[in-house]
């Protein structure tokens, strides 16, 4: 089985979020970038688990500039067999998806596993878009995935519960929590990552369809109103009369 895992680079969760150029650009000052958590913990590790069980190959793909090779090497250290970087500073998810789909068409892949959402734009876009560019079946928010022949059984989140569906491969599966057990790269993985193949390909996508007009930070930090521990009735009153939430 040949599996493609798109990975994305995002600011670390603990980064201070700030903007420059009249609030039009994300400020990268003092920001540490990481592999998007759900791409790493659930999508990539699930792909590796499937390969370990059934044989095959795991390829990671990233759309971005050379500076992204740090997270690509980490994916190789965790256990991907090879990597592809599309040398392109994409302006929106549509361009990213178009690049991934165009590479996927060349590769004979059975499965593409994506993360849930990136922790920067929280938009859940790339998986669905890639599926549509390829005209493949897709399931998102998957917490269980098993593959048998050309069928996959996927348990996905629905409102108020979960649903288990069978889909025919090739397909795109979007991960959510618990799809796989996160792994930390070991020394052997880190050493071998240096020599695993990383291919750089040139971009082919058309223009972006959306852009960020501006960013905005919350106007001020919340002011916490304290209630004394021996006056809990006051909290109930405030929640009812002031906050109007009960």
């Amino acid at each position: 089985m040949k599996i493609l895992v798109p990975i994305s680079k995002v600011p670390d969760t603990t980064s201070k979020i700030a903007f420059t150029d009249n609030n039009s650009k994300f400020s990268t000052d003092n920001v540490q970038f990481i592999m998007n958590p759900t791409d790493e913990w659930y999508a990539l590790t699930k792909a590796i688990e499937l390969k370990e069980q059934q044989g095959g190959e795991v390829v990671v793909i990233n759309v971005g500039l050379a500076e992204n090779e740090q997270i690509i090497r980490k994916a190789l250290a965790i256990g991907a067999d090879s990597a592809v970087r599309v040398d392109f500073d994409a302006a929106d998810a549509y361009q990213v998806a178009e690049e991934i789909a165009s590479y996927a068409k060349t590769g004979g892949f059975d499965l593409i596993i994506t993360g849930k959402e990136t922790i920067d734009f929280n938009s859940f876009q790339v998986g669905g878009m890639v599926a549509e560019f390829l005209d493949w079946n897709a399931v998102s928010l998957a917490s269980v995935l098993t593959v048998e022949g050309n069928k996959a059984n996927v348990t996905r989140d629905i409102e108020g519960g979960t649903e288990t569906v069978e889909i025919t491969l090739p397909a795109v599966v979007g991960a959510t929590k618990d799809l796989a057990q996160a792994r930390i790269p070991n020394m052997k993985g880190i050493m071998s990552a240096r020599t695993k193949p990383l291919t750089v390909v040139v971009p082919t996508s058309s223009g972006a369809l959306t852009k960020v007009a501006s960013f905005e930070l919350p106007s001020k930090a919340k002011e916490c109103k304290y209630v004394q521990a021996d006056n809990v009735g006051e909290l109930v009153r405030l929640l009812h009369e002031e906050a109007k939430v009960i």
Binding site: S123, G128, M129, I158
Partner: peptide, 24 residues
């Protein structure tokens, strides 16, 4: 809706229509 199914359906529709998509 940006609900569980909409999160997957909306980007697919956007690609079919070659539409700019604003998620969430």
């Amino acid at each position: 809706s940006f609900n569980p199914s909409g999160k997957l359906l909306a980007p697919r529709v956007a690609v079919r229509l070659k539409a700019g998509y604003i998620a969430g």
